[in-house]
Design a binder for these strands. Sequence first.
DNA 1: GTAAGTCGACCGTCTGGTCGGTTCCTCCTA
DNA 2: TAGGAGGAACCGACCAGACGGTCGACTTAC
Lengths: 205, 205
Amino acid sequence: MAREATKKRQTTEAHDEKRNEILRHCATLFDRVGYHKASMQMLADEVGLGKPTLYHYFPSKNAILFAMHDAHMSALLAGLDEEGGSDDPLGRLRAACIDILRQIAEHPGYVRAFMDHYEDLEGKMRDHIRAQRNAYLQRVRGIIEQGIANGHFRPCDPGLTTLGFLGMCNWAYKWYPPLAKRRPPEDVADAICQPFFEGLSLKGR
Amino acid sequence: MAREATKKRQTTEAHDEKRNEILRHCATLFDRVGYHKASMQMLADEVGLGKPTLYHYFPSKNAILFAMHDAHMSALLAGLDEEGGSDDPLGRLRAACIDILRQIAEHPGYVRAFMDHYEDLEGKMRDHIRAQRNAYLQRVRGIIEQGIANGHFRPCDPGLTTLGFLGMCNWAYKWYPPLAKRRPPEDVADAICQPFFEGLSLKGR
DNA sequence: GTAAGTCGACCGTCTGGTCGGTTCCTCCTA
DNA sequence: TAGGAGGAACCGACCAGACGGTCGACTTAC
């Protein structure tokens, strides 16, 4: 019984690992030619599998897209958790920005799919991602609200400020990848956020 | 001879006007269902024309996409020209942000096509837009550099700061359209840029 | 033995784009 | 001013090709 469960889990794990490997390959192709121009045949060739085998791991092209969205959002949400306890809102914002930048540097394909093809997600997959997106947005907004309440931040419209901040970070997917070898996420995060943080902060004034 | 030229121009103008009208319709469809999911037949139906007639005005689907890109970039570049003489860099940045936001409010379809489908542009069209993009980027960067040189702005990395600023503004295409009826561009621009400008500025410290 | 992994060949659909032809408008000429 | 030349606007019907996805069968590996 126990052995059976173990074995079952092992095979499932192997399966999941293979799925991730496939995902990585697909991401590079998406990144190279774009989601819509990448056909299932091209994807299969890229991974080194037959097309039906690819369908054995993912039920549809859209499911591949979804898996990338999910991986990206889960990583960001997990990053937020790590500093959950801190009461330094500026530090948490900085950490969030670094997380996004690192995600862009390490998985440019996932991120590009995430940014440009959310609308291509179908049905429940889209609902699921929307929920994650909203949760993320609300948590970042919470950090800013907390900062204002704390007296760390100057009063401002928390909703729009959140959107502005995330725009600044997310937009980096358009220009950061070719730079990523030379400049680490921390470095870039500090540079692009400097004026923003400076203006947001009430300390040292 | 003169009459001929006039007439020629008139028909060409009518032609251009029709093209713009078509573009507007296409933009609403792109905005509703996305560029790739909008077929030429759907586009033609939306405009109220037969498919071959649509091809009479635009040689390809890609050319429609290009026309939108071009319209958007030309509008932004023209906006930059308007305040070209000013030596108030903060005001010019604010104006640029307002321009972007207004463009999003008035032509959400163009902007979405521009943001998400630059990579779908083919050959020379892409080259043309890339050149416009770069010109725009350099000019915004120029404003920031001027501000630093002037002593209006605190020293910072002008390249990355430009990217951060434009990210903040451009990202608004993802959230601003449904808000645009309630909140005018000026209003929103001030709200999202407030911390950034505050931190960038050296005055009043 | 059986279940996961693998795939060559196949299919229905849909899409961008074309063809051949008609209608309509404008201007030129007699 | 009648008539006609010519080009712009317009479209129903069509096509070649590509694409997402499926079928049925073979091969491992436990």
